[in-house]
Amino acid sequence: MSWTAGYNNSVAYTTGFYQEQSPTYLNACLVMQRVAPPSIEKFTYCELGFGQGLTSLILAATHPQGDFYACDFNPVHVLAAASIRDEAKLSNLTLPENSFGELAQGKVELPMFDYITMHGIISWISDETRAQIVQFLKRYLKPGGVVQVSYNAMPGLAQVLPLRRSRRGYA
């Protein structure tokens, strides 16, 4: 199998900011459920499969007390995000260019994480790659840490469907 492991890399991933991945948002959700959240005084954060990187770039810029790692194996994604990171002088954002398997096997030196997030990953990867993510979580999630998984799927986008339809000229 090729380096893409079945991933379609012929089209660039969409650019978007996903507030649900924010440590402060996640902590608010936990507090509302009466679960003690990790401290945001000083924390470590990892986004697996960051696409264009906008979420991690914004979070690193707005949470200077955090050490951010955004991991993606697509070199185009990593180069684009690294360019913005460097221009913005975000010294708290590291961008490893590795597969989930390499990360899960510990081939990259990473800290233990308070937060590990993924958007739009779990639903379209192979069972083998999902198992690698579970291995990564077992290896790198701190006790009491948070894992966040979200999907870019129809139920989550239902509120914008009328706007989409109106812009395409049909109701």
Results as ranks from 00 to 15, higher is better:
Gly16Asp: 07
Met32Ser: 15
Ser10Asp: 11
Ala171Trp: 09
Ile58Glu: 01
Thr24Tyr: 14
Met154His: 14
Val134Lys: 12
Asn92Asp: 06
Met32Arg: 15
Cys29Val: 10
Lys42Gly: 12
Gly156Asn: 15
Gln33Pro: 01
Val11Pro: 00
Tyr7Phe: 13
Arg85Met: 04
Thr44Trp: 07
Ala36Asp: 07
Glu109Ser: 15
Thr62Asn: 13
Arg168Phe: 12
Gln105Asn: 15
Asn27Gly: 07
Phe100Gly: 02
Gln159Asp: 06
Gly144Ile: 11
Arg164Ile: 12
Gly49Pro: 05
Phe43Tyr: 08
Ser166Cys: 11
Glu128Gln: 13
His63Trp: 00
Phe17Gln: 01
Gln159Ile: 09
Pro155Thr: 08
Arg85Trp: 10
Lys89Thr: 13
Tyr13Ala: 14
Tyr7Ile: 09
Ser10Val: 06
Lys42Trp: 02
Ile125Asn: 04
Leu90Ser: 06
Thr94Phe: 06
Pro38Cys: 07
Ala82Trp: 00
Gly66Phe: 07
Met1Tyr: 11
Ala158Ile: 12
Leu163Asp: 13
Gln19Ala: 15
Thr15Phe: 03
Val108Arg: 08
Val31Ala: 15
Leu163Ile: 13
Phe17Pro: 00
Ala131Gln: 13
Glu47Ile: 03
Glu87Cys: 07
Ser91Ile: 02
His119Cys: 10
Gln132His: 14
Gly144Ser: 09
Ser166Val: 02
Gly66Ile: 02
Gly6Tyr: 04
Lys107Ala: 13
Tyr140Ala: 06
Thr24Ile: 10
Gln52Trp: 01
Leu95Pro: 03
Ile133Pro: 06
His119Tyr: 07
Tyr25His: 11
Arg130Cys: 14
Ala28Pro: 00
Thr129Pro: 01
Tyr25Ile: 11
Pro162Arg: 14
